[in-house]
């Protein structure tokens, strides 16, 4: 099976030709090793960085921003968004604080 995809690792966006042959994944078109890594991940278990905003206790017009420190399964991002939309952050939380852990990946505060 042959798949053409765009690497999303950096702004260059290499066009990757990925061939899956006898259980092996062959990647062509990548300009750096990250492209190969991305293609392998994308054909087996696509992942994305999760980010969203969260409400802060006692704040009416301000939300905090959070993200995952590593990519999480793409299929779960939407569910995570819904889950975090219902949560409140303590107002004493600081930037870089870990506020949750999803499948072993920390969720950190990026702005408060």
């Amino acid at each position: 099976m042959k798949i053409t995809m765009t690497c999303i690792y950096c702004p260059i966006g290499c066009t990757l030709d990925v061939e899956i042959k006898d259980g092996r994944i062959i990647v062509k078109g990548n300009r750096c090793p990250k492209g190969c890594e991305y293609a392998r991940q994308e054909v087996t278990d696509p992942k994305r960085i999760f980010f969203t905003v969260m409400r802060v206790d006692g704040e009416e017009y301000k939300v905090a921003a959070v993200r995952s420190v590593a990519p999480l399964p793409k299929t779960e991002i939407k569910k995570l968004n819904e889950k975090f939309a219902k949560k409140y952050l303590n107002k004493n939380t600081k930037v870089r604080d870990k506020i949750a852990n999803i499948h072993g990946v920390d969720i950190i505060v990026t702005r408060i």
Partner: peptide
Amino acid sequence: LPQCIHNGFGLQYLKEDLTGPEFAN
């Protein structure tokens, strides 16, 4: 930058994948 909460900032300058607020910080 503080309102650009997605990642993808700083890959060239810092060799790190940050969100807007983090890059600004």
